[in-house]
Amino acid sequence: MSWIDIGHIDDIPLRGARKLKTALGCIAVFRTNTDEVFAAADRCPHKGGPLSEGIVHGQSITCPLHNWVFDLNTGQAKGEDAQIATYTVRVEGERILIDGADLAARSAA
């Protein structure tokens, strides 16, 4: 694993999200009500809505375009046969780190 520092926890609003640009395309980084951080593809498989603009509730995100709801742990859409890619992130102190090896492996694949 190679952890890449992508920002401070407060750079993401509480119950909000920010976009992260990567070679794989945009990744949405979410912060829940209890300061957990998740990362997942920023593109809804339904109509391509930017999930980083959705509403974060519990450990779920609702797409801003047509209200598809995804579990941020698994990427599974609720009640739909669809899933988004999730990425490994962790919070160390107040910094958010993403697993760079994971990103590199997937962009090579």
């Binding site: 890449i4 992508i6 920002g7 993401i12 070679a23 990103l103």
Partner: peptide, 14 residues
């Protein structure tokens, strides 16, 4: 700054 990406890793990943 809130409207910009949190970070840009396009170079790092390459």
């Amino acid at each position: 700054e809130r409207y910009q990406p949190l970070a840009d890793l396009t170079l790092e990943a390459a």
